[in-house]
């Protein structure tokens, strides 16, 4: 039996009928065509599927869509809604070479956003701890950490 759910994604309201076994990741990517959120390991280890739900970064691959009913969700697409100007974290990732193949990037940026929302002045260990649930198999961690440091600095000046 399908369940009628209501999602707020990037500020937009959606009414959807979803089967219970479908994950938030599947619904975002397949039903809403928000393919910025990736599907990686499917076991909550890699962080590629990270979205922000009610201010917390969560694995969309381990969230049932029915259990996201009524929740406020932000995906990578919601960070730069105009499609023109990038969010300062995105800007810093581009500027400081923190993107290699790019597969981990949306998840990294969503975790970075939660980190900076909670702690606008993180030191390096704070950043590494905040990103510890996001794996980059190109192993470009130093540049990612640097980009987040720079983004924090920029956001504090703005």
């Amino acid at each position: 039996m399908k369940h009628l759910i209501h999602l707020k994604v990037n500020g937009d309201d959606y009414e959807l009928a979803v089967a219970p076994h479908r994950t938030l990741n599947e619904v975002l990517r397949e039903d809403l065509a928000l393919t910025g959120t990736k599907f990686g390991c499917g076991t909550g280890d890699c962080g590629a599927c990270t979205v922000i739900m009610n201010g917390r970064n969560v694995s969309s691959c381990l969230t049932l869509a029915v259990e996201a009913n009524g929740q406020d969700i932000m995906t990578i697409e919601g960070l730069a809604p105009s499609g023109q100007e990038l969010h300062p974290i995105q800007e810093a990732f581009v500027t400081y070479g923190a993107i290699q193949c790019g597969f981990c990037t949306p998840g990294m940026i969503m975790s970075a956003k939660v980190l900076l929302d909670k702690n606008p002045n993180p030191d390096e260990p704070d950043i590494r701890a905040g990103l510890s649930g996001n794996l980059c198999r190109c192993t470009g961690y130093n540049k990612i950490v640097e980009a987040i440091e720079k983004a924090a600095h920029q956001m504090n000046q703005d």
Binding site: G44, G47, N57, V58, A129, G130, S132
Partner: peptide
């Protein structure tokens, strides 16, 4: 326990 995301869930 586990990762940031898993601790949030």
């Amino acid at each position: 326990t586990a990762t940031v995301q898993v601790r949030n869930m």
